[in-house]
């Protein structure tokens, strides 16, 4: 698997390169701004781009805009965004248009190397990875809706699901059996009135409803 890294802080970029290499990726390009990133993606067509949200010249949301562009123009390249702080609007922007091959993590998560590598592989493989902080922050927005009918356990399961974990991953995180996870998930589907369809599709729908981005089909 091949990766491109866009991060303007040299110090962090060096660390990121090492972590991404440790994960078994080949780092084919490093850049420190959005323009360089887009050029590198066009040229290299990597499997994943690891992108800092704040980059020159504006230091605002260059990374997010580049990520949206990459996902639209080169759908085979997954994007993992790294941010100094959580901005749920960015997460919502990303998830409204794309529900696969997208990740949004806080920068400091890179330090938890094993978990970060896990998220990296998941996103590169077409999955999602959302920072627990993003999830918590999106929850603050929820008012009275079907989500309130969920038990706290079901909510935990849904949060982890939103973070992109598999059933096994959720079971591991909550220290419960995989069949218990499946039971919770079915109960969530029921409570959220999700149509009976292919399991993965319903999963995405549940997460989207949870995140409050898009009521209909993605």
């Amino acid at each position: 698997m091949r990766a491109v890294i866009a991060e303007d802080s040299v110090l962090l970029r060096i660390g990121l390169v090492k972590v991404v290499q440790t994960a078994g990726f080949e780092v084919v390009a490093e850049t420190d701004d959005a323009e360089g990133l887009l050029a590198a993606v066009e040229e290299q067509r990597p499997d994943i781009a690891v992108v800092d949200v704040r980059m020159p010249p504006g230091f605002t949301d260059e990374g997010v805009r580049a990520a949206l562009l990459i996902r639209r123009q080169w759908p085979d390249t997954a994007v993992l965004l790294l941010s100094q702080y959580v901005e749920e609007r960015y997460a919502a922007d990303l998830l409204t248009s794309h529900t696969s091959g997208i990740g949004y993590l806080l920068k400091q998560r890179v330090a938890d190397v094993e978990e970060f590598i896990d998220a990296l592989r998941r996103v590169a493989g077409g999955g999602t990875a959302l920072d627990p902080q993003v999830v918590a922050q999106l929850l603050v927005r929820r008012h009275s809706d079907p989500l309130d009918r969920l038990t706290s356990r079901e909510r935990d399961v849904l949060e982890l699901m939103a973070g992109g974990r598999s059933n096994a991953g959720i079971a591991g995180a909550l220290v419960i059996s995989e069949s218990a996870v499946a039971k919770h998930i079915n109960s969530i589907f029921g409570k959220l009135d999700l149509p009976v369809a292919e399991a993965d599709h319903r999963r995405v729908l549940a997460v989207l409803r949870f995140l409050g981005v898009g009521r209909g089909a993605p």
Binding site: L11, K18, V19, T22, A111
Partner: peptide
């Protein structure tokens, strides 16, 4: 963060 990344590595 860089230090933590290195230690994590």
């Amino acid at each position: 963060v860089s230090m933590a990344v290195n230690l994590g590595l």
